[in-house]
């Protein structure tokens, strides 16, 4: 559904943020986009939405070129930016003005989501807190019934109960026709929600694999002593949290933080395992 081929992108011509990046996203998945600060997570998301233009390469989103900014595609994308600025109108006038652009807009669903998020419908958008604005934008975006949902750090600014509500809402938002991609630093917030992990590093895709694929090939374990099979480890209270090749077909629980650190520090060791 989303196909990126040999994408070259940089804010300055001589300094590329993505170098020949390729990627394919299929419907029915929640992708977790990870990367260090400045690795280009937001830029990749903006490229997919046509908000920035790549130097070269091809991008196809549901058969459209996002850079053309055609209404047919825009109506199918829900983009939740990290920073928000909303006009100073009331919720219902915002909805009245914007919802008609989406032909499948679900008003009842919007009301349900707003109720779940505890947002009174006659609030003025500017007077709401950052977290409330974010929740409103998420609720509105999901109610548009867009097929491609892009979220840049959606849990930033959400309080603890809202994070749980967010996870519930996202779990119900995933349908077979939808692609959801979420960039985040707060992996713990989204741990069990993501089913495929994409890690950006060094202007490339350092890892792109489903959680099943990862836990099929790797084993996340707490061990007492390090040995040569350990790919990556971090000291813990009772020894080491370690990443090992999955020799014994163990079904371990993916530790995203550990995996991320392993990929960032030791890409070369992991490459042969996934290829």
């Amino acid at each position: 559904m989303i196909q990126i081929d040999n994408l070259n992108f940089g804010y300055k011509k001589d300094k590329l943020l993505f170098n020949n990046m390729s990627m394919k996203l299929s419907p029915g998945h929640i992708y977790g986009l990870l990367g260090k600060n400045g690795a280009g997570k937001s830029s990749l998301l903006k490229n997919m939405a046509g908000l920035v233009y790549a130097q070269s390469g091809s991008l196809s989103v549901m058969g459209f070129d996002p850079a053309k900014r055609q209404p047919g595609l825009l109506a199918q994308i829900c983009f939740i930016p990290e920073e928000l600025y909303l006009p100073s109108v009331k919720i219902d006038s915002y909805v009245k003005a914007n919802a008609p652009f989406y032909k499948d807009f679900d008003h009842a669903y919007l009301s349900t989501l707003l109720a779940e998020f505890d947002i009174p419908a006659n609030n003025k958008l500017v007077n709401m807190s950052y977290g409330q604005k974010k929740k409103f934008v998420i609720a509105f975006g999901l109610a548009t019934q867009a097929k491609f949902i892009i979220m840049d750090e959606p849990t930033n600014g959400l309080d603890i109960p809202s994070k749980a509500q967010f996870r519930k809402i996202m779990a119900s938002a995933l349908t077979e026709e939808r692609v959801i991609i979420i960039s985040t630093h707060q992996v713990r917030d989204l741990d069990n929600l993501i089913d495929t992990i994409i890690i950006l590093d060094d202007s490339k895709v350092a890892l792109h694999a489903s959680i099943d694929q990862i836990t099929d090939k790797l084993c996340f374990k707490n061990i007492r002593n390090l040995d040569e099979t350990v790919i990556y480890s971090e000291p813990s209270l009772s020894g080491y949290n370690a990443l090992l090749p999955n020799y014994h077909q163990e079904d371990s629980r993916l530790d995203i933080e550990l995996l991320f650190n392993a990929v960032i520090t030791d890409k070369e060791k992991l490459k042969p395992i996934f290829n």
Binding site: H29, R167, K168, A171, S172, L174, N192, L193, D195
Partner: peptide, 17 residues
């Protein structure tokens, strides 16, 4: 699958599995 995924706050694909 969806109901349980929502209740447990996990990806529906995981519940499917």
């Amino acid at each position: 699958v969806r109901e349980l995924a929502v209740e447990l706050e996990v990806n529906p694909n995981t519940v499917m599995r």
